[in-house]
Design a protein around this nucleic acid. Structure first.
Lengths: 191, 191
DNA sequence: CAGTCCCGAATGAACGTTCAATTGGTAGCA
DNA sequence: TGCTACCAATTGAACGTTCATTCGGGACTG
């Protein structure tokens, strides 16, 4: 991965921040330009169009999420530990990158999100699938489609992060653990 | 609830359908007007602005979802049965009303969604909370905040519906049941 | 001087909204 | 029954604004 030019990075960051505040349509290119300390024309030096900017930003954001998953799904650690690490890792990542989370959600629910590659080719989900596949192989999880397990787990992380981030719900450490435990109880074979 | 004028209804339906296909910003009022078989000006007879139209449509859509929850959360039916009924009822509702689901998701993740009332005043979630509260009282569910339980359950429904609706995942009847069962296993007090 | 990076005023299309005009229906009255 | 007055519903062309994008040029680099 080659380093990303300063201005390009600034454009990325500004876009994410502004989209979170003003929404997809509510952030004109001129606003991005001003916020990023860049001329309007400069954006078009780096991106073909607004749509391309948005798509590239999505991919960039996804890379970051992928890095978190990759980091937490370590083969050498016991599966159950790994499971909780992953949940916490992703949850913390989303909480610390609210701009990204909000941008993500807006993107996948917009028409852009419609023409994404099939889920098997999605690098983020592929990693998740592989991880849960491992859990099944090792006899830790119920023998259910790994896609189902991954989706269930991820949706619980996302919805928890969204809810607490918006301030619509406050959770202490213990409650967060309860959520993870419920998920584990539902998915695991044991007991 | 007084009956909604024909044209107003047509505008609602067209907006929902078009927003699903073209997204929030991608559907100009002129497009809504043409699709609804109505003049542009007519929309402004019923709605103050585009924003008002969108907000009213959201409320209208929410009413429908509320009706489903109200129908399925019957006090006289055993809690566990009710739980599965609710899951299936909502899931089926979303699957049969994709326009609505997509509109919903776009709305709550847009800046509009930011200034919604606190969750306690949200009629939809209040119903859900009450239902899960009942489960706790009756000793069927773990003594966890009903808000957590409700959120977890609903997010599993939403993500399942979204994924299958987009065709990114296909689930047969048995797999749907497995999802519900995992959820139940996680949330219920074991005996 | 060729190439890259960057600027920001200018452009033209698209959009939300307005409004003067038209229609259709209904209530009041003789 | 016929006449008038009134109002809500509806129309679509027109308006003013906003926006994504373009482009001619400046500045720095090798």
């Amino acid at each position: 991965m080659e380093p990303i030019a300063d201005k390009k990075m600034a454009i990325f960051r500004s876009t994410m921040e502004l989209v979170r505040e003003n929404g997809f349509h509510g952030t004109p290119m001129s606003m991005v330009a001003k916020h990023a300390g860049v001329a309007a024309g400069t954006i078009y030096h780096y991106f073909e169009s607004k749509e391309h900017l948005l798509r590239e930003l999505f991919e960039y954001a996804q890379q970051q999420a992928i890095a978190v998953v990759a980091k937490e799904t370590c083969e050498t650690i016991p599966f159950k530990t790994c499971f909780f690490n992953l949940w916490n890792g992703l949850y913390t990542f989303y909480r610390e990158n609210l701009d990204l989370l909000k941008f993500f959600e807006q993107f996948v629910n917009s028409p852009f999100g419609a023409d994404r590659p099939p889920i098997e080719q999605d690098k983020f989900y592929s990693l998740l699938f592989a991880f849960f596949e491992r859990g099944i192989q090792q006899g830790e999880l119920k023998p259910v489609s790994s896609k189902i397990l991954a989706t269930l787990a991820h949706s619980s992380i996302l919805s928890t992060a969204k809810l607490t981030a918006q301030g619509r719900l406050q959770l202490n450490k213990q409650e967060l653990e309860e959520i993870q435990l419920m998920l584990w109880d539902g998915m695991s074979l044991k007991r």
